[in-house]
């Protein structure tokens, strides 16, 4: 079975700073994985490297067996911030862009998602609240039938009702075989959702464990585990 994501010895520098060091990571199809770490730890960079947005890395990144940035992108649905669109663009125009640009875009899934997330796509992009904008980004991202979904901090700065709806739509619409990586530094709301947890600290992946393993071996919740990793309560040799 091909891994959904297979990263070997990934190193990435920019502006003479080391951002990721020796990252090696394998994720299986069908898993929901929490990518946790402080701001600036390298979560976003790792996602952007997987999606082929960050350049000049050393090492290999394979998604669904594809190693070049262009072919990887066909299998990756990344929650992008919609900066390529103009504030006056209607949401339905953005949908048209996606439908035309991505062969795996499902119009039906899109319709189901915006209905469930209560988004009126006759609105203009500039009029959306932060919560609605984030929900719309999730709707677009999940409307693609991709092998890998990368959600970069989908819950930051949005109200709890929107957050619940987003979580619910992930459960409803993620295909069984698709892998989903959710980055966050606030864990408690998504803890029950995660199959696995990957923690980035000091420019590298310091641990990658199954959620059940964390709960059973350490007797800790995901959030408590994450905090103790960061505070150094759990030493490296315990992983």
């Amino acid at each position: 079975m091909t891994e959904a994501i297979d990263i070997t010895n990934l190193n990435y520098r920019r502006n003479t700073k080391q951002i990721l060091t020796n990252v090696t990571l394998q994720l299986n199809p069908g898993k929901i994985v929490g990518l946790l770490g402080e701001n600036g730890a390298g979560k976003t960079t790792l996602m952007r490297l997987i999606a082929g947005l960050a350049k000049g890395e050393k090492g290999t990144i394979a998604v669904h067996g594809q190693t070049t940035a262009a072919t990887r992108r066909a299998f990756v649905s990344f929650s992008e911030a919609l900066q390529g669109f103009r504030p006056g663009d209607k949401l339905s125009q953005i949908r048209d862009f996606y439908a035309l640009a991505y062969p795996d875009f499902s119009a039906k899934k899109y319709l189901d998602l915006i209905t469930f997330l209560q988004i009126d796509d006759d609105q203009k992009l500039a009029t959306l609240s932060k919560g609605t904008r984030e929900k719309f980004i999730i709707a677009l991202t999940l409307s693609r039938e991709a092998a890998v979904y990368l959600l970069d901090e989908p819950f930051s700065g949005i109200d709890s009702m929107s957050r619940k709806r987003i979580i619910s739509s992930i459960i409803r619409w993620k295909q069984d075989s698709a892998t989903m990586v959710i980055s966050d530094h606030y864990v408690s709301e998504i803890a029950a959702l995660l199959d696995e947890v990957v923690i980035i600290k000091d420019h590298t992946i310091c641990t990658h464990k199954r959620s059940d393993q964390i709960r059973r071996e350490f007797g800790l919740g995901i959030e408590a585990f994450y905090e103790s990793v960061y505070e150094g309560d759990i030493s490296d040799d315990q992983f």
């Binding site: 929901i32 459960i171 409803r172 069984d176 029950a192 995660l194 199959d195």
Partner: peptide
């Protein structure tokens, strides 16, 4: 299975 997952707000795999 998916309905249970939605009702309980947990992962389908779980």
């Amino acid at each position: 299975v998916r309905q249970l997952a939605v009702d309980l707000t947990v992962n389908v795999n779980t």
